[in-house]
Design a protein around this nucleic acid. Structure first.
Lengths: 261, 261
DNA sequence: CAGTGGTCTAGACCACACC
DNA sequence: GTGTGGTCTAGACCACTGT
């Protein structure tokens, strides 16, 4: 043990490490602040700047990197939003303990599972045009009974069913085929239709399984199910999709990483 | 000057409305950009700038408001993060359809209920020091069997129980009394101890109620419960609190508003 | 006191979307 | 083209923290 390092920050030459790790290319179309932010992020998650490390002040950093102070600030702001550093006026900037960073964002279960390395399988139980029920019509902003695309899927991983997913979409906005949906997931299809997802509201609840649900999801009668209703909007505020999903609670849970406002 | 009004956006004199609604006080300690952001937010959620309204460009706004363009940008950035407006290069800024905005943030159930206008009640079922079980010890980063404060509460609203909340805290960090906890909630107590909450990880799942839980929560046997485990960290990355909560699913659900990354 | 991040200014040039 | 937001600069002063 060479370093006593008791309660104080580890002796790391932050600015040196950063200058080594970050290469700014002014010819690149990527903004300078973003190059810097990404470089800093790599440096932090790569462990070159351990938790607790004090990062030198903006003015010094700006000088050494050859950019202006607002540019450094913009990059730092990004790191704060990612929860990688904490800044306090009069004190300085410090690398914080990194935590799991699963954002519970605008991704699908498919994406979640795939990034977990589990190869998910999907089977389409039904796909067609139906008249909208009241709740669906409300969510999509249509009249009750209006035509909507209904898509029902069973999602499995490791040969066991995980979720029954029911989605409703306005007719004609997204072209859905069974093949495409089994291959890439609904959200991939939506994005490839040129729709930019912007926001979603979702509600997570629980209830007990009906007999049919229990059989479908390979659970016992009366088992607890997680339910999730999600309505997704594009960047014009128009509803893109409404989903009503049930998950086998014994094999699935939602995780979220929260940051202070 | 007559508005072209190309059929889409409602004919609203955005800059006029904004100038009427936003009063900037340069003597105030509140930053200008924040005064502006709040003013814009009020204007949007108050309906004075209906969804679809085109907001005038930054330069004009800056001129009329008597501030610099970066200040306007900073305020706009805030509105984008709140999901209230969409901006596109070459196009402009547009108010989007406002959605429910319950952030599922670092708040407590107590805060959630209170901001809903329901006056919540809390009764402390037990409060004391216990030896940490394995899962609790892991979450708090302690040895198994180490002393931790255990707090068990029953939360009700409208005379019906909603949740049983079990929290574990390291000994000595926060002074907890039954009176304080029944009055203001745990997170209020933590904040008033000078601890700055920074991040949390939480897992939401479901299971069926045990007999005792069903009785406590006024549910039938085998009813579905929502479960939530949360571990909260301060801005030094140190664990502040670990909680293990169960909610009567028939009377509670989690809502979240998501924005695209 | 000195040092830090927070805010603000008054410009500039660029990339992009629409006409 | 024209107009928009996106980026960037080189300063300035202030508020806060710790000495």
């Amino acid at each position: 043990m060479v370093e006593p390092d008791r309660g104080q920050e580890p002796a790391v030459d932050a600015v040196g490490v950063i200058l080594d790790a970050v290469r700014l290319d002014r010819a690149s179309p990527v903004p300078l602040y973003y190059q810097l932010a990404q470089g800093l992020e790599r440096t932090v998650v790569g462990g070159l700047l351990p938790p607790g490390t004090r990062i030198d002040n903006e003015i010094l950093l700006a000088e050494r990197l050859g950019v202006s102070r607002p540019t450094v600030r913009q990059a730092m702001q990004y790191l704060v939003e990612q929860g990688l550093v904490v800044r306090r006026r009069g004190i300085g900037t410090k690398v914080v303990q990194p935590k799991v960073r699963r954002p519970l964002g605008l991704t699908s279960l498919f994406d979640d599972l795939r990034s977990d390395g589990q190869e998910p399988a999907t089977s389409v139980l039904s796909l067609g045009v139906v008249g909208a029920e009241a709740s669906v019509a409300t969510a999509l902003g249509l009249e009750e009974g209006a035509e909507v695309v209904e898509l029902v899927r069973l999602r499995s991983a490791g040969n066991r069913p995980i979720a029954k997913m029911t989605n409703y979409l306005p007719v004609g906005r997204v072209e859905i085929s069974r093949e495409a949906i089994e291959k890439g997931g609904l959200y991939e299809l939506i994005r490839s239709a040129g729709i930019v997802l912007h926001a979603a509201t979702q509600t997570i609840g629980a209830r007990t399984a009906t007999t049919a649900e229990a059989r479908l999801l390979d659970e016992s009668r009366g088992a607890a199910l997680l339910t999730m209703q999600r309505t997704a909007y594009d960047d014009h505020g128009v509803v893109v999709e409404h989903g009503n999903h049930v998950y086998a609670a014994s094999r699935y849970s939602f995780q979220a990483q929260l940051l202070s406002p």
